[in-house]
Simulated assay, not measured.
Amino acid sequence: MLLICHVVWMPSYSGEKDVHAGGFDYVIKFGYGHELFNFMQSDDFCYGFVQIRTGTIDISRLGADKKDTFIDGVTVVWTAPHPEGGRLVVGWYKSARVYRNFQLGKVAGRKKDGDRVGYSIQAAAKDCFLVPVEERNFSVPHSQHGTPGQHPVFYPENSKNRNFKKWLVQCEEYIANWGGRPIGVSGLISEPRPIKNSAGKGWPATPDVAHNAAVEAAAITIVRDHFVNMKADRQKDNCGWDLEFWRGDDVICVEVKGLTGNEVSVELTPNEYQAMRKAVEGTFDSGEYRLAVACNVLGVKPKLFIFKHESGAYWICERTSKRIRLVERTAARLS
């Protein structure tokens, strides 16, 4: 189930004053919109506001019974008008609870000028994703028959617009392949995800060695098939990358990461990170550095991303133009 909610344009939706009204009357009049807290974490949740004149969302169109006051498991896509024109996806909630009626609960931190700010949608912060301003480039078709219009809430399930149906598929792929971390987890690429043991505490439990080996082997095969012209296998050399290929007269040094899911999010060992840092600083002298991330490697349709350094902390995929961001994280362990 998917719901599209149109709100004002803001950088972080965490209480800041920077807002672009974009035709929203309330914001033009008062200088702010109640969606200003949509991506602010409060007690492990995010609470979303969308301006509905009736205060009611027709959750029966999302599968709820007439007597239900809310429905769970909805993907809510948040869109906003870009200050220079057009409508873009700015974030989304996964597995959200959508209420039929407007909620004015006592949620910590959700006050503006002394007044409580209500909400209609709730989701765990770990399921809430905000697209950074500089990466907001996924446009939304609108103001045509069967596409989102002036009403802030759009139910796409009955749209007969063929182009919009294609866009919905692209939107689902965009969300599935997003490389950023949710609101409830700090950092992006190269930050490890903690895997708790059965007690829910302490250091990560022992990994499934056989499973990890299968994932790694599948990723290596996918990358080899892509580049074809093999020069050397460096996996046992502990040099910071796994494979080398010829591309004409150039040598491509590739660090390979395999994932069973579709989200591009990987961590690097110290050696791997050192090689990547050299590529960022322009001091990598063994060839051209690439980071290959193979997703869904054990599935029917794996997907391969080949990232090269773009600028600063950003890396761009040569195949899809997808961008990811490198975030450093320090760690320590004492025993």
Rank of each mutant, 00 (worst) to 15 (best):
L2D: 15
L2H: 14
H6G: 14
V7S: 11
V8Q: 13
W9G: 08
Y13R: 00
S14E: 13
S14V: 03
H20M: 00
F24W: 04
Y26S: 05
F37T: 10
F39K: 00
S42P: 10
F45E: 12
Y47S: 07
I52L: 15
G55N: 02
D58E: 12
D58T: 07
I59E: 04
S60T: 12
D68I: 00
F70R: 05
I71G: 02
V74H: 08
T75L: 11
W78P: 05
A80M: 10
A80G: 12
P81Y: 05
E84W: 03
G86W: 11
L88S: 07
L88R: 14
W92D: 06
K94Q: 14
R97T: 14
Y99P: 08
R100T: 00
F102L: 12
G105Q: 13
D113G: 09
D115A: 15
S120K: 00
I121T: 11
K126N: 14
D127K: 15
L130Q: 07
V131P: 03
P132W: 03
R136L: 04
S139D: 13
G146T: 07
T147A: 07
T147G: 03
P148N: 03
Q150L: 05
P152L: 09
P152R: 01
P152V: 01
F154D: 10
P156E: 13
N161Q: 02
N163S: 07
N163M: 02
F164G: 00
F164C: 08
L168M: 12
Y174T: 06
Y174S: 03
I175N: 06
A176M: 12
R181G: 15
P182R: 08
G184W: 02
V185N: 02
G187P: 07
I189C: 13
P194T: 14
N197W: 00
S198H: 04
G200C: 11
K201Q: 01
G202L: 04
P204F: 10
H211K: 15
E216F: 00
A218I: 01
A219F: 05
I220Q: 08
T221V: 12
R224A: 03
R224W: 00
D225V: 00
V228A: 09
A232V: 07
R234L: 13
K236M: 12
K236R: 14
G240S: 06
G240K: 02
E244P: 11
E244K: 05
D250W: 02
C253L: 05
G258P: 04
G258I: 04
T260A: 11
E263T: 14
V266H: 10
E267V: 02
T269A: 04
Y273D: 10
G282C: 09
F284H: 12
S286P: 02
G287N: 08
E288V: 15
R290D: 06
V293N: 09
V293C: 10
A294D: 08
A294T: 09
A294N: 10
V297M: 08
G299D: 15
K301S: 15
K303C: 09
I306G: 07
F307R: 09
F307Y: 05
K308M: 12
H309L: 04
E310D: 05
A313Q: 06
Y314W: 05
T320A: 06
T320D: 09
R325Q: 09
V327C: 07
V327P: 01
L334K: 08
